[in-house]
Design a protein around this nucleic acid. Structure first.
Length: 203
DNA sequence: CGGGTGATAGACT
DNA sequence: GTCTATCACCCGG
């Protein structure tokens, strides 16, 4: 529940220095933590998607498209790439060596600490299950906005912390990407089997 | 100032 | 569970 005496420690920066598919898989089961004056929030990541930079039509950085917006993906692994989708903010972890625009999208997590803050951010009507079971919902619940663009996931107040891991990780095709290109079918979505906070999608 | 960028909430079956 | 109307910000020119 809330008020846990747990201490969350930012993960080492070298955690992010690995191939993007491996990072996406390893992020499942870790904590995402947001420290605020009002309190601390933590959620265990249960769903991610890998975006394989230059060769991936679904990535914003396809073909090494380099703009002010995608610029951060060419930076060091572990940086925060946030982007705005209408009313929603989506969170990504930059991966790959400098100059290689890979990224991992964090799609869903399971609330662990700071539950009252998350509920306030999401609204009292919603069931707990609906607080964080989607990328936009997760950002809103944790209070993450575009101001974290370019931050690093091993720096407070927003960071990844070592979590308990996941029971069993499954893979599948990614969500919410166009129909063009064969990258659509790649099993680059990672999620914990049978976890209720994994976002639902057509099979 | 126009184009690009998918997820959400709620109603309905 | 399935369907769909509605939602806003950043960027480049």
């Amino acid at each position: 529940m809330d008020g846990g005496i747990l201490l969350y420690v930012p993960i080492d920066k070298d955690f992010f220095e690995r191939p993007v598919l491996e990072l996406a898989r390893n992020l499942v089961g870790q904590y995402i933590v947001h420290e605020l004056p009002e309190g601390i929030m933590a959620a265990r990541i249960v769903e991610t998607e890998a975006y394989h930079g230059p060769e991936d039509r679904a990535a914003h950085s396809f073909g090494n498209r380099r703009t002010k917006r995608t610029e951060i993906m060419f930076g060091a692994p572990g940086l925060v790439y946030t982007y705005q989708m209408h009313t929603h903010t989506l969170m990504n972890v930059v991966c790959g060596p400098v100059g290689t625009p890979h990224a991992v999208l964090i799609r869903a997590a399971e609330p662990v600490d700071g539950l009252e803050l998350m509920r306030d951010n999401r609204g009292l009507k919603l069931k707990m299950k609906d607080w964080t079971n989607g990328p936009g919902k997760l950002s809103k619940a944790l209070g993450v906005t575009m101001k974290y663009y370019g931050h690093h996931w091993s720096d407070k107040p927003l960071f990844i912390a070592k979590g308990p891991g996941a029971e069993k990780i499954e893979t599948g095709p990614r969500v919410g990407i166009g129909n063009t290109g064969e990258a659509v079918h790649y099993p680059w979505r990672f999620f914990e089997k049978d976890n209720p906070y994994v976002s639902k999608y057509r099979l």
